[in-house]
C-alpha cells in the first residue's frame, strides 16, 4: 500500500503538471481536491486517464469517482480493489 502511494505521487505529479510539489510533502490522507492538493475538474479527468494508463482500470461511465478520489489513500485502495493483476504482487 505505501509503495503504491509513493508511486501514485510521482505519477500524479507528472501527469497533472504538479512539478512544484515535493512528493515527500504530500500527505496521503489529505484531500486531493480543493483545499488539499488543489486539484480541479480537469485533474479529475486526468486521474481517470492515469488509472487506465498505469493500472488498466477503466472508470465506468456515469459512476461517481468522488469516493475513490478523496485522498491518495482512497485512490490506492480503489486501485487495489479494481486491478485485475495487482502491481504489488
Amino acid at each position: 500500500m505505501e509503495t503504491l502511494i509513493e508511486t501514485l505521487k510521482l505519477q500524479i505529479i507528472d501527469e497533472l503538471n504538479l512539478d512544484h510539489l515535493d512528493p515527500a510533502g504530500i500527505d496521503p490522507d489529505a484531500p486531493l481536491f480543493n483545499e488539499g492538493m488543489g486539484l480541479d475538474s480537469i485533474d479529475a479527468l486526468a486521474l481517470v486517464m492515469l488509472l487506465e494508463k498505469y493500472y488498466g482500470i477503466k472508470a465506468p461511465k456515469g459512476e461517481s469517482m468522488k469516493p475513490a478520489f478523496a485522498s491518495l489513500r482512497t485512490l490506492a485502495t480503489y486501485i487495489q480493489e479494481h486491478q485485475a493483476v495487482p502491481a504489488e504482487g
Binding site: E15, L16, N17, D43, L45, A46, M49, E52
Partner: peptide
Amino acid sequence: FFPNPAVFV
C-alpha cells in the same frame, strides 16, 4: 493511446 485532458485543454 492515453490522451491527457490536462494537456489537451
